[in-house]
Computed example of a mutant assay.
Amino acid sequence: MTHALPWRPLALAAALLLPVGASAQETDPETGLIQAEGWEVVKANCTVCHSARLVTQNSGSRNHWEYLIRWMQETQGLWQFRPEMEATILDYLAEHYGPKEGARRPPLPRHLMPDNPYATGEGPG
């Protein structure tokens, strides 16, 4: 004779309430960085100059993160990374702080836009 366990319906209900793709990724309590492969390298290199919040509140493709690294190297005094270290940083950032789906609102329709005071009379404006 099988007895239904009382927690099973609750566990099933809880699982159904999770958003699709939700995972139990742990974050570092000190920085808020997702604790996954490469996070300690990111913490050790990125939080020397700025808060990890600058990372966690942003997102971008691997190319975008690489662009930011180059900009920081050229203008902010960021050191050069060994190629394998840079690859680890970029892999981590692209995987865990990649482009967000649906993060921007759609553009406003033209009829809701104000007139452009600088319009030259050519094209929309």
Rank of each mutant, 00 (worst) to 15 (best):
A87D: 15
E95K: 15
T75E: 12
Q57H: 10
E86V: 01
H50V: 11
M113A: 14
G98C: 08
L54Y: 09
S59R: 04
V48C: 03
P109R: 07
E74Y: 09
H96D: 05
V42H: 02
R53S: 08
G77Q: 04
L78I: 03
W71A: 13
R53H: 11
R62K: 14
P106M: 11
H64P: 00
R110A: 14
T47V: 10
E74I: 00
E74M: 09
H50Q: 11
P117S: 11
Q80T: 12
F81I: 03
C49W: 01
H50D: 13
I69H: 03
R70C: 01
H96Q: 10
R53P: 00
L93K: 00
L90H: 03
N116Q: 10
H50E: 09
W71T: 07
G98H: 03
L93G: 03
A94N: 07
M113I: 14
N63P: 00
L54V: 12
T75A: 06
T75D: 10
P83F: 06
L112D: 11
R105F: 13
G60W: 02
N58E: 04
A103S: 15
E66K: 15
Q80L: 14
H111L: 07
K100P: 00
V42Q: 02
K43I: 07
L108S: 12
R104P: 00
A87G: 08
R70H: 09
W79H: 09
Y92Q: 04
N63C: 00
A44T: 03
S51K: 06
K43S: 07
R110M: 06
A103F: 15
E101D: 13
R70L: 10
R110D: 06
H50W: 02
V48D: 08
W65N: 01
N63S: 09
E95I: 10
L78F: 09
R110Y: 08
H96T: 06
E101A: 15
T88A: 14
T47F: 06
Y67I: 03
W79G: 00
T56P: 02
S61V: 04
Q73C: 05
P106R: 06
E86D: 08
A44L: 01
H64E: 12
T56H: 05
H96C: 08
A103I: 13
Y92H: 10
P107H: 14
S61Y: 01
S51A: 12
N63F: 00
C46E: 10
A52L: 01
L108G: 08
A52K: 00
S51T: 14
H64W: 08
N58V: 01
G102I: 05
L78W: 07
P99S: 06
T56S: 12
Q80S: 14
W71I: 07
V48N: 06
S61I: 02
T56Y: 06
R70P: 03
Y92P: 08
M85I: 13
Q76K: 15
M85T: 15
Q80G: 03
L90T: 01
Q57C: 00
A44C: 01
N116P: 10
A94E: 12
A103Y: 13
M113T: 14
A52M: 02
L108H: 08
H64V: 05
N116V: 12
